[in-house]
Design a protein around this nucleic acid. Sequence first.
DNA 1: GCATATTTGTCCGTATGTATA
DNA 2: CTATACATACGGACAAATATG
Lengths: 239, 239
Amino acid sequence: MTAETGRALSELIADRALLGRTGTAERVADILRERIARGFFPPGSRLSEERIGNALSISRNTLREAFRLLTHERLVVHRLNRGAFVRVLTADDIGDIYRVRLLVECAAVRDLGEPGGPPYALEAVAAAVADGEEAAARDDWALCGTADIHFHQALAGLAGSERLDDLMRGVLAELRLAFHVMGDPRRFHEPYLSRNRDILTALESADAAGAERLLGFYLEDSRRQLIEAYPAHAARTGD
Amino acid sequence: MTAETGRALSELIADRALLGRTGTAERVADILRERIARGFFPPGSRLSEERIGNALSISRNTLREAFRLLTHERLVVHRLNRGAFVRVLTADDIGDIYRVRLLVECAAVRDLGEPGGPPYALEAVAAAVADGEEAAARDDWALCGTADIHFHQALAGLAGSERLDDLMRGVLAELRLAFHVMGDPRRFHEPYLSRNRDILTALESADAAGAERLLGFYLEDSRRQLIEAYPAHAARTGD
DNA sequence: GCATATTTGTCCGTATGTATA
DNA sequence: CTATACATACGGACAAATATG
């Protein structure tokens, strides 16, 4: 058992007290999803049915249902007769994720300029920008990464589509897997703080076209930086 | 048991011979997905664990895993302690589906005009148009609806994104649920045959902007027609 | 290459809680 | 209010595949 795995299991046991109510499988999936997002279960690690089932005091059948949920969110891969593993993204995955982001996020921002759309609801966007700046002030770069993801989720949310929200929630959760195989989160997240605020400012000035342009540059820069830094680690964890 | 349900169960038993190998739950989900798409299990019908499990000779645990898969595809809703039901779309759902279609399909077509994109791969689009025309010639309007969905899936596929393909596959499968509560499929599908071909022709002429414009009108007309015809049935099946 | 131990895949039977008649 | 039907979750069982020595 690795040190990370041991710590993750302690946290799981602590969470056990909270799952008394309804929908056990969904609750288990929620817990595992958060552990994966936080990096307690890093990409590539195996999710043992026996070990996690014992830690949470749930049956294998229930745990397997939770795995199914996470598999469909692409956070877990299921290899036949070998079990469940935390997904390891390829460089192609990252490219595809950014293709989706560029398409959806830019369209959501652009359509704000069209007549007949709902009134701007920038509260969530502004809150995410503030959270990111606050986290940076406290040198909490993991939290800053979370705020950045919330910022982009809020941008996509401006489209007002339940299905696009689901898509982006999933895609950005996947992207987090890539963050965990990158070192130096500060160097990766810090430069984008001010660019997030610039985009918010443009939106508040009703300059949808300007916001879209800034966002396009942002995503292209981010994609390039991530893909260039990625392969070194991918070679280690791929199979 | 209704007549439709009885027929569906016979078909399920016939399918039993095919699911001997691996991944039982996925195979069961495949079968149920096709039955739902074809309308053997119409929107609103209950999917009894015992009945279907007996018909397919599989255990409840395996069947429940199949239900989970379909639930995450939004084809099935799971009400706590009441079981699994084929989903009944609301008018809002249809509106959201068309918002996604407009955004994704138009962007996929538009980006074809940009430099550096992959070479046009219109084979699947052209094949879907031909399939639709052939089905119409044989008065098979269910098959014509299938071809129409394949046409739009192929359009979205021009973006070359695995995740967008998944999104559109799910969204268009949902849209099929709406088709099943509408009568007169001929009146609904026939007018769009020539419009599909017009879009294809524009793409073959490298006129991405023209294709995008035609597609936008198409989707707006289709959305309006569907939503106007929908509420009469929604009132009957909604709860 | 072979034998063993571990882990997963599938299924059953049962106890409990919930909604409906 | 009681009774019935059903879904949920559990624990145990066995076969099959994999990993380990």
